[in-house]
Design a protein around this nucleic acid. Structure first.
Length: 227
DNA sequence: ACTTGATCATTC
DNA sequence: GAATGATCAAGT
């Protein structure tokens, strides 16, 4: 069980510095210092690395619709990588809206706002590595470059267009160059409201936007070179 | 090997 | 059910 902590960073620099001071430490070491138990595997604790880092860095705990560090406007994201620095998984961004889309555009979208400023914390987490032995890499703060934002905006528009046209069910993970739409639910029976191509309301599987691996890999390579 | 689709815990 | 945190594992 991970509970909120009170050492909230007072500045962006303090946050980055603290995050970077964790580089090289294992999840086991960080958890031990926090007095937190490490799960044997992540089968039933899929969000555990993220919660551990949130706790350690003093992020606001809980499921609030705001950044992890509200005063700083920074979102925290852990990302599993292999020893070469390549992400092992796509990165969840936010749930996709299927209704209430009138007036929604890229500029006021949840995706753009979520990705405005992200503190990425890579974790060398190859499957065969025991969870406590997984190692924190060098964290870095990222904001989308104009080029990156254009790619994201293009994909967002393509996917939202399909949703607006009532083609939610025809969207697969193959759509999108750098960002895809995939299931995001407790299970395949979960349902949420959407509209079909005739404008009729119906129930469908909730989905979320995910950043594809080549995109996040690019961010890591870029920030590794530059520092 | 890699991606897409499915799933797990917790809180509100 | 929806939002937070993601990874698992079947399919290609």
């Amino acid at each position: 069980m991970i509970t909120p902590k009170e050492n909230i960073p007072d500045s962006e620099h303090a946050l980055i510095t603290k995050a970077q001071s964790l580089a090289g430490f294992t999840l086991g070491e960080i958890a031990a210092q926090a007095g937190i138990e490490v799960p044997t595997n992540l089968l039933r604790d899929k969000g555990w690395p993220g919660l551990l880092l949130e706790h350690t860095l003093g992020a606001t705990a809980g499921s609030k619709p705001e950044p992890d560090f509200p005063e700083l406007g920074i979102e925290l994201k852990t990302i599993p990588i292999n020893r070469q620095g390549k992400p092992l998984e796509t990165t969840f961004v936010s749930v996709a809206p299927f209704t209430g889309l009138v007036g929604v555009n890229w500029q006021n979208s949840h995706v753009k706002n979520k990705l405005k400023r992200v503190l990425w914390v890579p974790i060398v987490a190859e499957r065969e590595m025991p969870v406590p032995d997984r190692i924190v890499g060098m964290p870095f703060l990222w904001s989308p470059s104009p080029e990156e934002e254009a790619l994201l905006a293009n994909d967002w528009q393509e996917l939202i267009d399909m949703i607006v046209l009532g083609e939610v069910e025809n969207i697969s993970g193959k759509h999108g160059q750098v960002m895809q739409l995939r299931p995001k639910a407790a299970n395949s029976k979960a349902k949420t409201d959407a509209f079909d191509k005739h404008g009729r309301r119906f129930k469908t599987l909730p989905r979320g936007f995910y950043l594809k691996i080549p995109f996040t890999h690019g961010l890591i390579k870029k920030y590794l070179r530059v520092g």
